[in-house]
Design a protein around this nucleic acid. Structure first.
Length: 590
RNA sequence: UGCCAGGUGGUGUAAUUGGCAACACACCAGAGUUUGAAUCUGGUAUUCCCAGUUCGAAUCUGGGUCUGGUAUCCA
């Protein structure tokens, strides 16, 4: 049945074919087909490969892995890989392992292992098994012995410079040295001696015997093992020889029966070696597939550069909200849902790319709009006195989230002295200025309509107060005034306002692609990427803010509580601003 | 330079594998609005170049060109 549908479907779906040859063209397609059509979402090239493999019966179920090296914090690029690997196995009923590629003891630390696990979990994924390449050291050693026995590997005493020189150039083949002819027995003994610590770092290496004339430089007898008398974060001092990436990754995949080993494009040349080793070792045939890594505008993504930003204190740490790290984005208030949606909807391919960070921000807004509690916060206040408001202070109700009917309401105190945003008033407004101006009316969100009667200034001409009158019949929810105003402002009762600190972030760099610019990428750091508002005024309900809550400060943007907050002082991070399509007209001169 | 990968609106991806180049973001215009948000309507804009095959090419062929990767005892 499924086969038949698959066979017919492409024909029916062809609009050309449908119109000219299909007598049912004006009718809806077969119910099954319309159903499918609704679900219709084109497959990315990896999904196509998986579906083809599954259809061919190559595997009954798929297995993927996420293989970070624990030498830094995870960033947006890793998120792509995580979503791909876990997404693929989830979609096709397989599983994904988390594997730490820890074959280089000098760069790796447990601190990173922990943060990586935390980040993957936070993104919402569960791995099947947690593995470490270092767990396979014994097994890998045995594999190397097997290769030696097959006379496909040998111990080389040359220095790294000599080996490099013998490798030839892209246009000229390399040549073997005398060590390549060492008999199997001798190689076995030497390799065992290497393992037993009889040699110093760099004295000897184990190389595969492949092809010194290969057009692929990587196949010219690549180094498999090197000597490093270094402490490993997991195996301690058990080993003094460590396998290189090429001798660890494919075999680790194989040991875990990974069916689809997904990596980035720079590993394409490694695929030939990957396959060669699996073939010669006669082990489970994992297959490597490559995709183009994701780049984002106005940031850098390489671990080396991110590390520099941290160590040279251009940012506050790996989790600085301006960093493209997972921990940075988390601290900034991005949600895992938004990041996952971004990764999924952006797609994947094999060409170079640089994704507009605005696209990421769109997905963040889209998610936050549904979740964030609305609150009023005034960053730069100007006092408004409502001269005809002689009542007692009152409590007004306002919805927590207009997008969420079940979101409930909270109460906001109103009195005759309020704050509004300084930028929401203009003495000589341009055309189409909907905010407050002399003689002009605005609605105070969830409260009343007010009209500006008088501007009070100090001796220097600075505006210190605005005197307004309110329209009693215009109370929110029971407005009988019949007045329609274009502008609605956020506001706070002066005596009820609480103070909070607000940190606003802008792009970390001034240019779209700092890495491609002349000179040092750090020359392009945006000096204004952090703006701190030490004292902003907030409505009282914000006193109960919790770390996991997301807020929208009305007309300001999305915010979340920062870890620097304490009982004495709350600190909010701006996650992302609201879209702002208001373009001020050229202002009239004052 | 050798080898490898890749060029589709401003950005990222599609195109049922040779049959009307689509989706999202961005942008513009409008509607609406107790957030100049969200929402809704409409719009601008695209196949690297040159040939060839074909009724028909983003897709196939040849040549060119541009971009990236690689040439570490990093991963």
């Amino acid at each position: 049945m499924a086969d038949r549908i698959n066979f017919l479907y492409p024909v029916l779906k062809s609009s050309y074919y449908r119109r000219s040859h299909n007598p049912l063209s004006s009718l809806p397609l077969h119910p099954m087909s319309t159903e499918e059509k609704k679900e219709e979402k084109s497959l990315n090239f990896l999904e196509e490969i998986v579906e083809a493999d599954l259809a061919a019966g190559k595997y009954k179920t798929i297995m993927t892995r996420f293989p970070p090296e624990p030498n830094g914090y995870l960033h947006m690029g890793h998120a792509t890989s995580i979503c791909l690997n876990f997404g693929l196995s989830k979609k096709y009923g397989g599983a994904t392992n988390l594997r730490f590629d820890d074959t280089n003891p000098v760069t790796e630390e447990t601190e990173y292992v922990d943060s990586i696990k935390e980040d993957v979990k936070w993104l919402g994924f569960e791995w099947k098994n947690e593995h470490y390449a270092s767990d396979y050291f014994e097994e890998l050693y045995e594999m190397a012995v097997k290769l030696i026995k097959k006379n496909l590997a040998y111990v080389d005493d040359s220095s790294s410079e000599e080996i490099a020189a013998q490798k030839g150039t892209p246009t000229q083949p390399g040549h073997r040295n005398k060590y390549a002819d060492r008999p199997v027995e001798e190689n076995l003994q030497l390799f065992a001696d290497m393992k037993d610590g009889k040699y110093k770092d760099g004295e000897k290496v184990l190389r595969a015997k492949v092809d010194m004339a290969s057009p692929n430089m990587l196949m010219r007898d690549p180094v498999l093992y090197r000597i490093k008398h270094a402490h490993h974060h997991r195996t301690g001092d058990d080993w003094c020889i460590y396998p290189l990436y090429d001798f660890a990754h494919g075999q680790s995949d194989s040991i875990e029966k990974i069916t689809h080993s997904i990596c980035t494009l720079e590993f394409v040349p490694h695929r030939e070696l990957y396959d060669w080793l699996i073939e010669k070792l006669e082990i489970f045939p994992s297959k490597q597939y490559e995709f183009a890594r994701r780049n984002l505008t106005y940031t850098v993504m390489s671990k080396r550069k991110l590390l520099q930003l941290v160590t040279e204190k251009h940012v506050d740490g790996w989790d600085d909200p301006r960093m493209p790290t997972i921990s940075g984005m988390r601290r900034r208030g991005y949600t895992p849902e938004a990041i996952r949606e971004f990764c999924d909807r952006i797609g994947i391919a094999k060409r170079d790319n640089i994704v507009d960070v605005g696209l990421l921000e769109f997905f963040v807004r889209e998610d936050l709009n549904k979740k964030a509690l609305r609150r009023m916060v005034v960053f730069d206040p100007v006092k408004v006195v409502i001269t005809n408001y002689t009542n007692e202070d009152e409590l007004l109700k306002s919805e927590n989230n207009p997008e969420d009917p079940d979101g409930g309401e909270r109460e906001i105190p109103f009195s005759n002295e309020i704050y509004i945003e300084r930028e929401d008033f203009m003495e000589n407004p341009p055309k189409k200025y909907f905010r407050l101006a002399p003689g002009q009316m605005v609605r105070l969100k969830s409260a009343y309509i007010i009209k500006c009667d008088e501007v009070i200034k100090d001796e220097k001409g600075n505006i210190t107060e605005l005197h307004c009158t309110y329209i009693p019949e215009s109370k929110s929810g029971s407005d009988a005034s019949g007045i329609h105003v274009k502008g609605t402002l956020h506001w706070l009762s002066v005596k009820h306002a609480v103070t909070v600190e607000v940190r606003e972030y802008d792009r970390l760099f001034k240019v779209e692609d700092p890495s491609s610019e002349e000179g040092d990428f750090k020359d392009y750091i945006n000096p204004d990427s952090l703006k701190v508002v030490k004292t902003a005024f907030a409505e009282p309900s914000l006193k109960n803010a919790r770390f996991e809550d997301r807020y929208q400060f009305i007309r300001k943007g999305y915010f979340t509580l920062d870890k620097d907050s304490s009982t004495s002082g709350m600190v909010f991070n701006k996650t992302v601003g609201l879209k702002d399509s208001w373009k001020p007209q050229p202002a009239k001169k004052n």
